[in-house]
Design a protein around this nucleic acid. Structure first.
Length: 265
DNA sequence: AATATTCGCAACCGCCAGAGA
DNA sequence: GTCTCTGGCGGTTGCGAATAT
């Protein structure tokens, strides 16, 4: 049996999307809406697989996406939500309008993780690194104690029941006599407590097929979410970054793309 | 100036769940 | 109930840019 690939991969293009491809995809979706992604590339005249088209749209081309780095409040929200939900990026993204799971995941892995470690917080447990180490050591010590007490008990039982024991007397154990404890009985899952959060997912963007009218009226800083007037420009986030830097490839490509989008209409 | 290394982001891959036949 | 297909998710990779040597 086995699953069929989402598309016939022979002759399909991979790698970065060109402006031409983006244009085709946007035009198609704006005219036809998001329907069957499998059919999109064929109908839109793209040599891509449907999955790739969907990802490109949801992560990059959607008109309601925010651009630029996450703000401090957004970052804080991500950290809080991660503490409750773990690596459920889509659930986290659902709480941050205009942000994608991929964007948040990348930001987490490249920025927030480091930041938390720098602050002495374990990004996995969200606990202070020092104290979690102490707890870990305590746990290990406890475990050791338990093992030692069990060993002691068995030794006592053993010594009491079979004095003068000799290893030569141990009967050989046959394979069928070995009893393996079931995994379910011995392993307890320690999933994070996610019950307290109920992602609303209220703003399903699937129906959003028009560029926001405000886009025509806003300036660059508004469109891109950049604060062009403030920031100390050192990139450390302490002075109102991100600041627009025409030589920053990432910002520049965003700008070019936004400008291009505007020219579409 | 040249080369090596690190960083950050976009895109891909494999798996899973749900829907429908 | 089984099988197939699609959309979605999270982890990983590739590659260009930035930085260090």
């Amino acid at each position: 049996m086995g699953r069929q690939p989402c598309c016939d991969k022979v002759g399909l293009k991979k790698g970065p999307w060109t402006a031409e491809e983006d244009k085709k995809l946007i035009n198609f979706i704006l005219n036809n809406g998001q329907c069957c992604w499998r059919a999109v590339p064929k109908l839109a005249g793209l040599l891509r697989c449907g999955k790739s088209c969907r990802l490109r749209w949801t992560n990059y081309l959607r008109p309601d996406l925010k651009r630029g780095l996450l703000s401090d409040s957004e970052e804080k929200m991500v950290i809080d939500l991660h503490a409750q939900l773990g690596n459920r990026w889509s659930k986290i993204a659902a709480q941050l309008p205009g942000r994608t799971d991929n964007e948040i995941k990348n930001h987490w892995n490249t920025h927030i993780k480091k930041k938390l470690r720098k602050m002495g917080i374990d990004p996995l447990t969200h606990r202070p690194i020092a104290s979690s180490r102490v707890e870990e050591e305590e746990e290990q010590a406890k475990l050791h104690e338990e093992i030692m007490s069990i060993t002691h008990e068995t030794d006592e039982i053993f010594n009491a029941s079979s004095p003068g024991f000799c290893t030569d007397e141990v009967p050989m154990i046959q394979p069928h006599e070995i009893i393996v404890p079931s995994a379910s009985a011995s392993v307890t899952s320690s999933s994070s407590s996610a019950s307290s959060v109920s992602p609303s997912c209220s703003s399903s963007n699937s129906s959003l097929m028009e560029w926001p009218e405000s886009m025509y009226l806003l300036g660059l800083d508004d469109i891109m979410g950049w604060d062009l007037s403030s920031g100390d420009g050192d990139g450390d986030g302490d002075g109102g970054e991100p600041k627009f830097d025409p030589f920053n490839q990432y910002q520049r490509s965003n700008f070019e793309q936004e400008a291009w989008k505007l020219e579409l209409f």
